[in-house]
Simulated scan of single mutants.
Amino acid sequence: MDVKEQLKALFEALAHKRALIHHITNYVTVNDCANTVLAIGASPIMADALQEVEAMVSLCDALVLNIGTLNAQTFEAMQKAASKANAKQIPVVLDPVGVGATPFRLQSVTELLRHVRMDVVRGNMAEIKTIAGLEAKSSGVDSLDDEADGGLIAASLAKKLQCTIAITGKEDIVSNGNVTYRLQNGDALLTNVTGTGCMTTSLIGSFLGTKSDALISAIAGISTMAIASELADKTKGTGSFRVSLIDEISKMDAATLHRFLRIQNVL
């Protein structure tokens, strides 16, 4: 089955299963992430209380971890929820926002990756290079690196961590260590709206909630956001674009993805 056929099956699976997606995420983008999950046809839960994260994740179909506004309590909640998810074979996706910005973020992600089996790690080029132990250029949570060597970096890290690595930027790279794809959709206006990376991670989590292949789930989540950005209304400014982006996500289906998807097997 080729990628487009797998994407069709994935959308069908999501339509038949309203996957419940547990988020421990950042408070800057939590509302947009929740609305994005609803728009694609899944259901969000945003819960980080230490007293309930293990019980909550046990009810869910996937777990999304996002360190955008990390603190000691949310880190402990992530550890507890992720360990329970691993024990119950619930897929986990990690968004290491600004991992190289401070020692606390780097130490926290390093600890998570040491003890938790991730299904997908999605970040920008600087974030993925930092996790891979490579020199990275960033400004706060934004990457200043290009994606020239993204395929090789993603494939190498995917093999090391035994998961799917997704690098988002001007072009997107997705690799499970055995096969690597370059995705060439997306509008530059995405960079002017806070949270589109977080929303993309939530989309990946939504597709993972169908218990589908991690590589295909990452391609589906990234492509849904990228193609929605191409279709969204860009005539009225970034505020209207943000609303239109969620509208387009709510209308996304396999046929639309097939029509616009630009994907290349690079490794």
Results as ranks from 00 to 15, higher is better:
I45S: 15
C60W: 02
A49Y: 09
A39T: 10
M56E: 03
I67N: 03
M56F: 08
C60K: 02
V57M: 02
S58E: 11
L38H: 03
I67A: 09
G41V: 09
A39G: 12
N35S: 14
A55E: 15
N35Q: 14
I40F: 10
C60I: 07
E54P: 00
S43P: 02
M56N: 08
A42N: 08
Q51C: 04
E52W: 09
S58A: 15
I40Y: 07
L50E: 10
I67E: 05
I40T: 14
D48N: 14
V57C: 04
A62G: 10
I45M: 12
G41L: 08
L50S: 13
A49S: 15
S43F: 11
N35A: 14
T36H: 13
E52V: 12
D48P: 00
V57S: 01
G41I: 11
A39M: 09
Q51W: 10
T36G: 15
E54Q: 15
A39F: 10
V64P: 00
S58Y: 01
L63C: 02
N66D: 05
I45V: 15
P44A: 14
N66P: 05
A42M: 08
Q51G: 06
A62E: 02
I40C: 13
L59D: 00
A55Y: 07
V53T: 10
I67D: 04
D61A: 07
L59T: 13
S43N: 09
L63D: 00
M46D: 08
E54S: 13
L65M: 11
A42V: 08
V53Y: 03
P44Y: 12
A39C: 12
C60D: 01
L65K: 05
A49P: 02
A47H: 06
V37N: 12
P44K: 14
L38V: 05
E54G: 01
L38M: 15
A42C: 06
M46G: 07
S58V: 01
A62M: 04
T36V: 15
V64K: 00
S43D: 01
P44N: 13
L38K: 07
G41F: 08
A49F: 13
I45R: 07
A49N: 14
A39Q: 09
L38Q: 05
L38Y: 08
E52H: 07
L65E: 02
L38P: 04
V53E: 05
V37K: 05
V64Q: 01
A42E: 02
V37G: 07
D61W: 01
S43G: 03
N66E: 06
Q51R: 09
A39I: 11
V64S: 00
M46C: 11
A42H: 05
L65I: 15
M46V: 09
A47R: 04
A39E: 12
L63H: 04
V64H: 01
S58C: 01
I45C: 14
A42T: 07
I40M: 11
M46A: 11
E54D: 03
I45A: 15
C60S: 15
M56P: 01
V64D: 00
A47M: 04
I67L: 09
A47K: 05
A47Q: 06
V57D: 01
E52G: 07
V37P: 13
C60M: 05
N66T: 07
E52Y: 06
A55D: 15
C60V: 06
P44Q: 14
